[in-house]
Design a protein around this nucleic acid. Structure first.
Lengths: 197, 197
DNA sequence: CCTCCAATGTTTACGCCGTAAACATAAGTC
DNA sequence: GACTTATGTTTACGGCGTAAACATTGGAGG
């Protein structure tokens, strides 16, 4: 809280927070380490004590995003209801995440998460996808979705919700309310389930 | 051809071409007006005679991309075959476009195409989407797709192929060959048609 | 053919950015 | 209480976007 001490206390988290805010205000290409530092009330090279470079900061944002998304997907997975209902819930969660945190979402899928440089971020991304695979598997086991390569079915569902999220965020899809987007998501995923029963 | 004249001849086109190449090599954030100028063998401010600013150049790339995509979609529309076959063809064309010109694709959907600043680019984008709507309409008229709000059905299909294209380009989907991606696209769109028959 | 103008390209300049190097301070360990 | 190490600052450099003033050219009208 006190900005007077030489040491900040939790600069790393403050920088990530500030970076997300800055992206929200100025877009991804408006993200600047110097401005992030300014907002944390710190010298313009201080961020380098916590991030190797600018890309490392965006990777941290991506990792945070994937972790949140993975949690949301797990939550849908653990909810009550039929497998079908839970898959729809998971799809809604995916799109809702993108609408609520478009800055995270954009960074997550704009950044190439090199396995060597950012193994944790990659792991978080894999976990998020694993949550989706689990939902699809449950549908298959319940006979709501045809047997066969689970991975492939999961990819179809993933592409469906990812496309909706991307186009909604990019304003190619114009919806009046977030609820409308989520209802549309459910409609699309319902068709997916019906088409692959 | 001769690089010796004071006037270039067709600098605008050369700049766009160079920009696309640069994005291919260095990514979208590696795009630099000065480097583009260098590659066209021209002073670093020459691009400003053809583009108001950097964003204006990327908008030109987006416009070019949407024009090509619209042409590809129209081509699928005019092909022979059943409406269903033509819709599958259109979906393949969308994904094939993204795989063949990932630089264009990324710029097209990363840039906010302001109606005021870039009306031509917006128009090209609308034309491309109109091609998809026509394909969906044809399926509806042939009874291959249920009646109801065409726009909504078209959006589901669009989101499906857009998601596949995005995730394939971003290497979230790992495929060995382009043909594999296109076969997968057809599978996904087939499910869409079956689910909404 | 000559003149002159509009289009196209160049030079120069400014402030911001990413990042490296050297230096300063604080916090916690022996 | 001294020392070490983590954390932050200062200074410096080259690259970038872009504005302003200047230069060259190709073509239109006489």
């Amino acid at each position: 809280m006190a900005a007077r001490t030489y040491h900040h206390g939790d600069l790393r988290a403050a920088l990530i927070r500030g970076a997300v805010e800055l992206i929200r205000e100025a877009g991804a290409e408006g993200l600047t380490l110097r401005e992030v530092a300014r907002r944390a009330d710190v010298s313009h090279t201080a961020p380098y004590r916590h991030f190797r470079d600018k890309e490392d900061l965006t990777a941290a944002i991506a990792e945070e995003g994937f972790a949140i998304l993975a949690r949301d997907m797990q939550r849908a997975n653990g909810a009550q209801g039929t497998p079908r209902e839970r898959l729809l819930l998971g799809g809604r969660a995916y799109v809702a995440f993108a609408l609520k945190r478009p800055e995270h979402f954009k960074v997550m899928f704009a950044t190439d998460l090199d396995e060597k440089r950012h193994p944790d971020a990659r792991k978080a991304a894999d976990t998020a996808f694993a949550g989706l695979v689990a939902l699809v598997t449950a549908c298959q086991e319940a006979g709501q979705l045809r047997a066969g390569p689970t991975r492939s079915l999961a990819r179809i569902a993933w592409a469906q919700v990812h496309g909706i999220a991307s186009l909604a965020i990019g304003r190619q899809f114009v919806f009046k309310t977030q609820a409308e987007v989520l209802a549309f998501t459910e409609e699309a995923l319902g068709a997916f389930l019906d088409g692959l029963a």
